[in-house]
Amino acid sequence: MSWHIDSETLQRYATGTATSATAASAEAHLTGCAECRALLAPAVPAPRLDAIWAEVDRQVDLSSRPLAERLLTRAGVREDTARLLAVTPSLRGAWLTSILLAAVLAALAANVTDGTGRGMAIFLTLAPLLPVAGVALSYGPAADPAYELTLAAPYSVLRLVLLRSIAVVTCTVALTAIGALALADNGWQAVAWLLPALALSAATLALSVRTTPTWASAAVGTAWLCIVLVSRGSSQDELVFGPPGQVAALLLLAGAVLALLHFRSRFSYDTRRSS
């Protein structure tokens, strides 16, 4: 190299005050001239260097993040929270796709057998079970390989459990609602699954303070199926899916939320009965 950048231009480039044309030509020279690079390094103010480094770190980090995390961040979720959410098995694409498929198929089945009312009952029985299954796979030893580490970490387990299960229930309910659009019957029954779905999910969470989410959801799911079968056996469908059932679901929801608040500290320990 026969020429070098004069100290004034170098200073301006280092502090980021050079015009873009000057900066471009300085940059072209710097890539080929070790001498000028050596002069440049100490001239860059430390805060500017830190800011540049932070931005590089951020860009590299963002581009390597999985799709789910990027979607969550774009939806306004904080990047650290997004990372904690994105590992949830029941928030993955494959799981959510199968939920949508199950809801649509149940709705189509309901249409085929319509007239007898049996089809609608199948949809209304199945729909509340979908978020329950999602909650079972939202945290705990079966869903989270790092469960043991999570317990020993200062991050509130209750907060993590609520974050994940609310995200799962919201997604599942939204997908089920999309599935319900395929129902031929658009009467009030098309939304009769919503309250039971929320109530059963909350009950699963409340039971999880004593056992694993897997067992809790199995217990809640079985209880729900028994109630539905018994009421069908005695031709009392209206009791479960009609107004009395809705009121009962609302009470269960309230009770489960209260129980959850009351026993919330138990999430802090391993909830398995044996080890």
Binding site: D80, R83, L84, V87, A146, L149, T150, A153, P154, Y155
Partner: peptide, 10 residues
């Protein structure tokens, strides 16, 4: 993964 645990460690 370690970043994930670091988030859990506040």
């Amino acid at each position: 993964f370690i970043d994930y645990v670091a988030i859990l460690k506040e």
